[in-house]
Amino acid sequence: MTPMVKAEGVHKSFGHVEVLKGIDLEVAPREVFCLIGPSGSGKSTFLRCINHLEKINAGRLYVDGELVGYRQKGDKLYELKDSEVALKRRDIGMVFQRFNLFPHMTALENVMEAPVQVKGETKAVARERGERLLDRVGLADKAGNYPSQLSGGQQQRVAIARALAMEPKLMLFDEPTSALDPELVGDVLDVMRSLAEDGMTMVVVTHEMGFAREVGDSLVFMDEGVVVESGHPRDVLTDPQHERTKSFLSKVL
């Protein structure tokens, strides 16, 4: 079975700062893959490389068996055109720490936007699915509200519905609950849990160790641009092998 995401020696630098120093990992289809680590460890950057919001400097990154951002012919790499990159991003949903909902559109319009504009769906079809998705994240009654009229947790659930509207085969979550009030975190995690139960492949950058332990299938601890330790969440979280992992977990658990 082709892995949904495969990274081979992925390097990324911003100027002279090397943020990723050779990441190797594989995410299997239907897997919930959690990335944890201190801030600045490169986990968010790695996530953004998966849908080519950041270009990698070295190594290879594959999504569903296809190279991200490039086309390989023989031993030469050709950069993809913007339109080709956009085509691949359709299949990869992303949820951001700060939601990034479109503030000039209602919740329903946010969810309908990409299917109508990108896939050329009719508004009726997109609306029908949009309403269903909003209902799924528990916000059927907020369809007509603008993001500024929603709480953080509600906004993040709309953002998840918006990403799902493109019917992606892979979902990326970039610290989806870090900007939320503690009591709103649960609603968002519930939605993510139900997605996992439905078999969605998910790569989740998170500080929610409870979620990682319960829902995660694999977990990677990153620090300073390298993978320090990986394994099943229960094993890594309860019995970390490396000193760095131990000291990090002792602070967050």
């Binding site: 913007d82 956009a86 504009q117 990403a163």
Partner: peptide, 24 residues
């Protein structure tokens, strides 16, 4: 973040400008 969110949804540069950035 607006541009990023729009790109992440698979919207082209032109659509992102027209539908997301310019209205704001």
């Amino acid at each position: 973040g607006q541009t990023e969110a729009s790109h992440a949804l698979g919207m082209s540069h032109r659509k992102t400008l027209r539908r997301v950035v310019i209205p704001q």
